[in-house]
Design a protein around this nucleic acid. Structure first.
Lengths: 66, 66
DNA sequence: TTTAAATGTAAAGCAAACTTTACATTTATT
DNA sequence: AATAAATGTAAAGTTTGCTTTACATTTAAA
């Protein structure tokens, strides 16, 4: 699963901490998601899409698993 | 998080087992998701949306947590 | 109406999403 | 150049998505 959170976040001039607060997860979680260490939960994906005012499909690109 | 998987699945005349096979999870997982016992992971949500040829947003309705 | 298929549910266990704490490194600011 | 802000990363722990096994109940078919 790929995502363009880092770019979208930069476009809004937000820090990882800012974003973390808005979506109610830890800063490390935002970092890990951006770095592709793991996928967010569905609720977290919804909150992310809300912040960037876009669809989950625009935020994340599904790639068949391992 | 609400969803209309049960209805969409019925419309395609699929059993929970059929759907489980297609999205590569267990039948119990499909049942639990339909019954709202837990939310699917993001990858599973993507696979579900693919089966029903719709967006994740059409499948799931986000509701602020606990 | 018996049999089979589909669904519901439960327990135990594993894996992944997330937390907190903590520290090191990189990038801005002064 | 010094300081602060932002980012990266790691370890240990909790929660939740998901598995398997197992069985009970509901719905459909013979």
């Amino acid at each position: 699963m790929k995502n363009n959170i880092k770019e979208l976040r930069a476009a809004l001039k937000m820090t990882q901490s800012d974003l973390a607060q808005q979506i109610e997860v830890s800063r490390q979680t935002v970092n890990a998601i951006e770095k592709g260490k793991f996928d967010p939960s569905l609720p977290t994906a919804f909150r992310l899409a809300a912040v960037f005012n876009c669809s989950i499909e625009e935020l994340f690109v599904y790639e068949s698993e391992s």
